[in-house]
Amino acid sequence: MTQLLHVQSVSGGYNPNKPVIKKVEFGVERGEIVGLIGLNGAGKSTTIKHILGLLEPTDGAITLNGKTIADDLDTYRQAMSFIPETPILYDELTLWEHLRLTAMAYDLTDWEERAESLLKTYRMAKMKHWFPSNFSKGMRQKVMIMCAFLVKPELYVVDEPFLGLDPVGIQSLLDQMVEMKNSGAGILMSTHILTTAEKYCDRFVLLHHGTVYLKGTLAELRTQANMPNAGLDEIYVEMTKEDDR
């Protein structure tokens, strides 16, 4: 069976002469959560944009189930959903209509029951027919999360999802990620909340200045950084110190 997501030596960015990411290489298997860790400006968002197919790599390739986006655009898109760092909502649609539009776009069947239970999980049932202009940042983020989980894709691409979420929201999100992982989905999550990442991610990719600095399980990171017993945050801080010298 081919790897779910494979980022093969990808270079790219907004200017061909100044690539933001250089020869980035990692993968996401089915049934695992991979943490994408790095400082502001390390290239996390650019990497994610390449995976989503919003940018085209100047070098290398990205395959999902062994196929690039050029092979089959719509199959590629169908297989993943995205939770953005800043919630992006249609001003013209109510919460329920966001879910319904998602169901249409991904051709979902039997979605209504699942949508209702998501509304309950995230305590948004009361706001079903509200417009986004009445939502707080956390509520908007919840709409994004619900839309992503409604699709139930093979791959989740999650960009810094915890900001602005209330504790119930954070716990529900983590529980749901674990549930999806156990049912065979792969999850790529970029975050700065390292204690959470350490607890929930199976493997890590540490990006620095657009290159993969370290990658592997926590144990592997410890060996590579030569810091036995260190936590993810300590390795992370050590990594940025390197830079100051």
């Binding site: 013209e92 539009l101 249409m104």
Partner: peptide
């Protein structure tokens, strides 16, 4: 009243936009 299926995605989105914006 649209059927929830892929081909209606943008009929729904643009219809609501037309009505409400």
């Amino acid at each position: 009243r649209l059927v929830t299926k892929r081909s209606n995605t943008y009929v729904f989105l643009y219809g609501k936009t037309f009505a409400r914006s």
